[in-house]
C-alpha cells in the first residue's frame, strides 16, 4: 500500500500535520488528493514556537507545504483488515499477514510505471 493510499484510509480520522514552516494543524481529515493537498475540519493551529493558537472550523493545506503527517495507530490495523478482506472468500483470515504479495506488487507497479523518465 502506498503512503497516499494510507492517507486516504485516514479520512474522518484525527491527525496532526506539520508544515515546513513548523506550524502544526490538528484536525479531522475531510479529503485528500494525489498531490497530498488536504482538507481538515475542526482545526487547531499551533505556531512554530508552540505559544500561539488558532481555532478554525476548516482549512485547506497545500501538499507542497507539508513536512509530515502523524496519524492514529489504529489506521494501520484498518489497512491490514482491508488488505485481508478481498482474500476472505470463505478461506478465513489466515492469509498473508500484511497482505504481503499483493502489497509488494502494488508497490512495484506504481514505482516503476507511473514516474516517467
Amino acid at each position: 500500500m502506498l503512503p497516499l493510499s494510507l492517507l486516504r484510509t485516514a479520512v474522518n480520522h484525527p491527525m496532526l500535520v506539520e508544515l515546513k514552516n513548523g506550524e502544526t494543524y490538528n484536525g479531522h481529515l475531510v479529503n485528500c488528493d494525489n498531490w497530498m493537498n488536504i482538507n481538515l475540519r475542526e482545526v487547531i493551529c499551533t505556531s512554530r514556537e508552540g505559544d500561539k493558537f488558532w481555532k478554525m472550523p476548516e482549512c485547506y493545506i497545500r501538499g507542497s507545504t507539508i513536512k509530515y503527517l502523524r496519524i492514529p495507530d489504529e489506521i494501520i490495523d484498518m489497512v491490514k483488515e482491508e488488505a485481508q478482506r478481498p482474500r476472505g472468500d470463505g478461506r478465513g483470515r489466515g492469509r498473508g499477514g500484511r497482505g504481503g504479495g499483493r502489497g509488494e506488487i502494488c508497490l512495484n507497479s506504481s514505482l516503476y510505471n507511473s514516474h516517467s523518465e
Binding site: 503512503p3 509530515y68 502523524r70 492514529p72 495507530d73
Partner: peptide, 8 residues
C-alpha cells in the same frame, strides 16, 4: 514515542 508518520 510518536506513532505513525507519513513523511513527505
Amino acid at each position: 514515542p510518536r506513532g505513525i508518520f507519513i513523511i513527505r
